[in-house]
Simulated scan of single mutants.
Amino acid sequence: MKKHCEIIEDLLPLYVDQVTNTETKMFVTDHLTECERCRQIKAELLKNKSYAVNMMQPSPTEPSPYELAFVKHIQKSRRWSGASFILLIFLFSLICWFLV
């Protein structure tokens, strides 16, 4: 039975992630019905898997006041640069029109 346990221990991460084929899944399931130690290992893997999934999800955070101020500054700069560009083109057009 120890030999089967070693094989199952290697297969359990794949079994928990549900990426084994049908035959392997049945083999692991049959073994888990008989072996308490392997069931405990499976339970530990499931616990760790749920922890890892929770750790991968980003936690929602509020932007800091510095971030908000920076975004407002960038938006304001963009507005001014756009308006300046349009004014510059208008003035250039007027100068060209008067010179012709």
Score class of each variant (00 low, 15 high):
28 V>C: 02
28 V>H: 01
29 T>N: 06
29 T>Y: 01
30 D>G: 13
30 D>F: 09
31 H>P: 05
32 L>G: 11
32 L>K: 01
32 L>Y: 01
33 T>E: 13
34 E>S: 12
34 E>C: 07
35 C>K: 02
35 C>R: 00
35 C>A: 01
35 C>Q: 03
36 E>I: 13
36 E>W: 09
37 R>G: 15
38 C>F: 03
39 R>D: 08
39 R>M: 12
39 R>Y: 03
40 Q>C: 03
40 Q>K: 11
40 Q>I: 03
40 Q>V: 01
41 I>D: 05
41 I>N: 08
41 I>F: 09
41 I>E: 12
42 K>S: 03
42 K>A: 11
42 K>D: 08
43 A>T: 07
43 A>P: 03
43 A>L: 12
44 E>P: 05
45 L>E: 05
45 L>C: 08
46 L>A: 07
46 L>W: 03
46 L>N: 15
46 L>Y: 08
47 K>S: 10
47 K>M: 12
47 K>F: 10
47 K>G: 05
48 N>P: 06
48 N>L: 06
50 S>E: 10
50 S>P: 02
50 S>Q: 11
51 Y>V: 13
51 Y>Q: 13
51 Y>G: 03
52 A>T: 08
52 A>P: 00
53 V>C: 09
54 N>C: 06
54 N>E: 13
55 M>S: 13
55 M>T: 06
55 M>E: 07
56 M>G: 03
57 Q>I: 10
57 Q>V: 08
